[in-house]
Nucleic acid binder design. Structure first.
Lengths: 148, 148
DNA sequence: ATGAATGCAAACGCTTTGCATCGTC
DNA sequence: GACGATGCAAAGCGTTTGCATTCAT
């Protein structure tokens, strides 16, 4: 696994140091959307002396090379995820912060139409749907029934 | 105009002070996507002694009451716009930063499908398409032909 | 030995907050 | 006079940067 990731870094022109490998591996394994601080916490178990600055510098490099994506759901601080094989969009629960990935290929076509009408050449897009997840809906329902 | 805006504030439960009116009016007239600093600069011509803190406090209040929307295009600092009558999405030029609004009603239906599959109840959504606008495309073309 | 990578702490930029002052009813 | 609104300056917070040190070659 680590060997494979090391190759990925090398082939992207990133020198695979121990720290960088830890960051990339953590992000790849977690499959989540982690903040820099969260990554720092996790990576320290593998590489205890690593500093937050290295996390940020590594994330920038990985992002630059397209190995990692940066998001700012809810306009909070940045969260990072290992770049998935194919693009997907996100459902975000505004109550508990849970993020669910989905993809909806038709959107790719719709956006083309909007861009063409405005003479834009598309580079990327971002679709985020904010709502309340099933768990939070249930909890809300229970809470309100208790109140009666 | 100012009278009308004053009524809007009052009916939203916001006490329409001189400063708040200036901020709201500036945002309504500009029709753009302004940063807090830009708003501050513009508002000072109407209300010279206003501080940046008041801008932020007012924007929060307006946002809370649904009169203003906050965006973070390109993961930059926040930009604000007076809430439009109907929801629209944004095309953002990654080269010059220009923002074009568009709406694509079909997207509303697509997102419902995605949310339903994941048992989410939708509160809002955000679709941003990043690309290169016509002007920047032309400039690029000229630059590259000059280089030959 | 040389240049890249790192840790630490200081700096940064946008935003928020504490507090004394001001304005309004 | 009371209370909310404001300006100012300081603090906060995520992120970036300068610099001395460490690491790899």
């Amino acid at each position: 696994m680590a060997q494979r990731l090391s190759e990925d870094l090398k082939s992207s022109g990133i020198h695979p140091t121990q720290q960088r490998l830890s960051v990339f591996q953590t992000l790849t394994e977690s499959k989540g959307h982690l903040s820099a601080e969260e990554i720092h916490g996790l990576v320290k178990s593998k590489t205890p002396r690593i500093g937050l600055a290295t996390i940020y510098r590594t994330l920038h490099a990985l992002k630059e090379k397209g190995l990692v994506e940066e998001h700012r759901f809810n306009d909070e601080f940045s969260r990072y995820e290992a770049k998935p094989a194919k693009h997907h969009d996100h459902l975000i629960c505004i109550e508990c912060g849970k993020v669910v990935e989905f993809d909806q290929p038709v959107i790719e076509q719709l956006q083309v139409a909007a861009a063409r009408d405005n003479h834009f050449s598309i580079v990327s897009h971002r679709l985020e749907i904010y709502g309340i997840c099933e768990t939070c809906q249930k909890r809300r329902a229970e809470e309100s029934s208790l109140r009666l």
